[in-house]
Write a protein that binds this DNA or RNA. Structure first.
Lengths: 339, 339
DNA sequence: TCCGAATCCTAGAACGTTCTAGTAGACGCC
DNA sequence: GGCGTCTACTAGAACGTTCTAGGATTCGGA
C-alpha cells in the first residue's frame, strides 16, 4: 500500500531509476520508444512525483510562497490571478494565511520552511526593516504596499490615479461640489487624497475642495456622513468601499436620495459593492495585471535576469454602478442604467 | 550562503548529526548539558529544520491538506478555525485553492503531491465516487457536504435545526404567516426546507406553510420577492444570505418596510450580512466547532484511533440583527435595537 | 580497421533529515 | 571481578528524487 516511486516504475519498465527521472521531467537523453514505454508504465502504476524529494535533491522548488490575510476579501480575489500567472511561469504556489490568531511572522516562517524560492506578501503590515531582513534570504515582492527598500519589489495600484478617475467621472456628470472622505494615515490614503486634490484642481474646482476625515470601517463612513450634512456636497469620493457603505447607510436612513441628491464613489470594488442592494460605483484595482506583475517580478529575481522596474504601478479603472448620477437639477442627464 | 543544516550545528557543537536531531525533536536520549549546548548553537546559527527532508525520511508529514474555494467567503472564515485546531493537534496546514480557472481535481492533486496525511475538503462538488476514490489513498473529511460513503468523514451543520431556529425566532415574535424561499436542489436546501416545515408544524402553523422556489443568488431572491407580493407573509426565511439580500433589495425598492411590514432571516452569516446597510438576521454556522471536529476526525483516521462518529453534525445558532421584528400590529413588541 | 562522436542508458552519490543498531562507559549487584 | 543494565552517544542506512560521470552501442569517415 506504499506510494509508487520512480524505482517501482523503473523495475516494471525494466530500465534504471535515472532514466525514468529523465523521462518524467521531459529532459533530453531518452529514446523515443523507451520514453513512450516508461510513460505508459507510469500511467498504469499511477505514478506521481514527490515534490519534496525532488526539491530536496535539486535545490529548486519552483515554489512561490504567498502570504495573505483571510480577513481581506480582496486578497482572496488576487489569489485567483496569482495561480494563473504562476502556472504559466511554471511555478506552484504555497499559501500561508494570516488570521486573527496567526500573525505575519508565523505565516512567513512557515513559507521559509517550505523552501519556496520567493515570497509574495499581500499588504504586509510588518515594518519595512523586517521586510528587508526577509529580502536578504529570499526575493520578496510586496503587493498593495509601498516599500522604499532597494531589495524589496513592489506591485501596487496607482491610487492617486484611481481617485482622479473618480473625480473625473463625477465632474463629467456635471458635479462641482465634490468632497472626499479620506483614510487618515492608512496605506494608500495619502495618495488617494492627493489624486482627489489634483483632479479637483485640474477641473478648476479648487474653490470647493473639501476633505473630511474618515477611516477604513463602516463607522468611519457613518461619522463622515454626519459631518457632511452641515454643508452637503453633491458628490463624495470615499477612501474605501466599506467606509462608503457606512456613509450610504446613514444617507439612506436620512432619506437622502442616492444618487439623486448625492453621488457616492467607493474604492476597491469589494465583492459586496456589487450587491444589488449596495450597487456602489467604485474604483477597481486591476487584479489580473497585478498578479501577473507580481509573479513576473518574483521570477525575475529568482532567475536573476536583469531588467524590469523594482516598483510596478498598475492603473485602476472605474466601475460605474448605481450610486453616481448627474447632480440634482442638472438638465438632460439621467442616472445611468444599473443593469 | 547555504542554509544551516543539522550537520552544521553538529560540527559546531562537536556532536553527531543524530544527536542534534534528537535534541531538536525533543526526543529522549540526550544529556541535559549537551542538550543545552546544542540548542544554544542551533539558536546562534539560526537553524531551521527542513520540513521536506524530515517528511522524506520519516514518512510522517504532520500536514493536513485543505481544499477551499476562493469564491466562497465562508470558506476563508473556516480557515481561521482550522489553523487553530490543527496547531493544537500538532499539525500544519497545506492550502490549495479552487478558483474560477483551477478546478477541484487540480487542487486535490497538488495536495496529494505535497504528501499531506489527510484531506479536508470544503464543500467539494466532485461526485461522491471521486471522493471515495480519494479516500482509498488518504483519510478524507468533507465539510459542509453530506456524503453517504462509509470511508469518507463528514462535518456539517444541522441545517434543519438552523431553519427551525429561524422559524422559532419569528414565531416567538408573534409571526404566523411565515414563508420560506428555498434553494432548490442545492446541497443543504432540502434540509433547510424540512426544518422550516417541521418548525411550522410544531408551532401549529401548518395551515399557512408556503414555500417559494428560489436559489443561491441575488436574482433568485429578487424573483421570489415578486412571487411573495401576491399574498404577502409577515416573515420569510431564505435559503442563504445572498438570496435574502436580493429579496431585501426588491422589498426596499417597493417601499416595503423591513422589519416593520416584513421580517427576513437569511442563512450563513456571510460577512456582508453584518454591514449596517444590510444588517440581516441570519443563521450562523459554528465555524470554530466545525473546524475543531474536522481536524479531530482527520487526526483520528491518521492515527487510527478508534471511536468517534463518521459524521459530525454541528448545531448552528441564530444571529439576530435588524431585519426581524414583531409583525405589524402586534402589541408591545418593538423591533430589537440594531446595535 | 580503427577512431571519434553521438546517442541512449546506468551506477552511485548527494540533498537534509530520521531511524535502527550498536558502542563506550558508568554503575550496581552478587 | 565478572556480568548485566542503563545512559549518552554515534555510525550509517534509508526516504525519493536529481545530478555527475561514465559505459555501451552505433555510425560515419579516414
Amino acid at each position: 500500500m506504499r506510494r509508487t516511486t520512480l524505482a517501482d516504475v523503473a523495475d516494471e519498465a525494466g530500465v534504471s531509476v535515472a532514466l525514468v527521472s529523465i523521462v518524467m521531467r521531459g529532459a533530453p537523453g531518452a529514446g523515443a520508444a523507451t520514453r513512450e514505454r516508461v510513460l505508459e508504465v507510469a500511467r498504469r502504476l499511477d505514478y506521481r512525483p514527490d515534490t519534496r524529494a525532488r526539491l530536496l535533491r535539486s535545490g529548486r522548488s519552483q515554489l512561490l510562497g504567498v502570504m495573505f490575510d483571510v480577513r481581506h476579501p480582496f486578497h482572496v480575489d488576487v489569489l485567483t490571478g496569482l495561480y494563473d500567472a504562476a502556472g504559466q511561469a511554471g511555478y506552484q504556489l504555497t499559501l500561508s494565511a494570516v488570521t486573527p490568531r496567526r500573525d505575519e511572522q508565523t505565516a512567513v516562517t512557515e513559507l521559509m520552511q517550505d523552501r519556496c524560492e520567493a515570497l509574495v506578501l499581500f499588504s504586509p503590515r510588518m515594518p519595512s526593516a523586517a521586510l528587508a531582513a526577509l529580502a536578504e534570504q529570499r526575493p520578496v515582492v510586496t503587493m498593495m504596499r509601498a516599500v522604499r527598500r532597494r531589495d524589496v519589489d513592489v506591485v501596487r495600484t496607482d491610487d492617486a490615479l484611481g481617485s482622479h478617475q473618480a473625480v473625473d467621472h463625477l465632474a463629467g456628470l456635471g458635479h462641482t461640489r465634490i468632497a472626499h472622505v479620506d483614510g487618515g494615515a492608512l496605506p494608500g490614503a495619502a495618495e488617494r487624497r492627493l489624486g482627489y486634490q489634483q483632479a479637483m484642481a485640474q477641473h478648476g474646482l479648487t474653490s470647493y475642495e473639501k476633505i473630511v476625515s474618515g477611516g477604513p470601517g463602516e463607522e468611519d463612513g457613518a461619522r463622515a456622513a454626519a459631518v457632511l450634512f452641515g454643508d452637503p456636497p453633491t458628490a463624495v469620493t470615499v477612501f474605501n468601499d466599506l467606509s462608503a457603505t457606512g456613509l450610504l447607510d446613514v444617507l439612506r436612513r436620512h432619506r437622502v436620495d442616492v444618487p439623486g441628491d448625492l453621488s457616492v464613489v467607493g474604492y476597491d470594488d469589494s465583492s459586496f459593492s456589487r450587491l444589488a442592494h449596495i450597487d456602489l460605483t467604485t474604483v477597481a484595482q486591476d487584479i489580473a495585471a497585478m498578479a501577473g506583475h507580481a509573479v513576473a517580478r518574483a521570477v525575475h529575481r529568482i532567475e536573476d535576469t536583469p531588467g524590469g522596474d523594482r516598483e510596478t504601478i498598475v492603473a485602476p479603472h472605474l466601475v460605474i454602478r448605481g450610486t453616481t448620477a448627474a447632480p440634482p437639477g442638472a438638465p438632460g442627464s439621467d442616472p445611468l442604467p444599473t443593469g
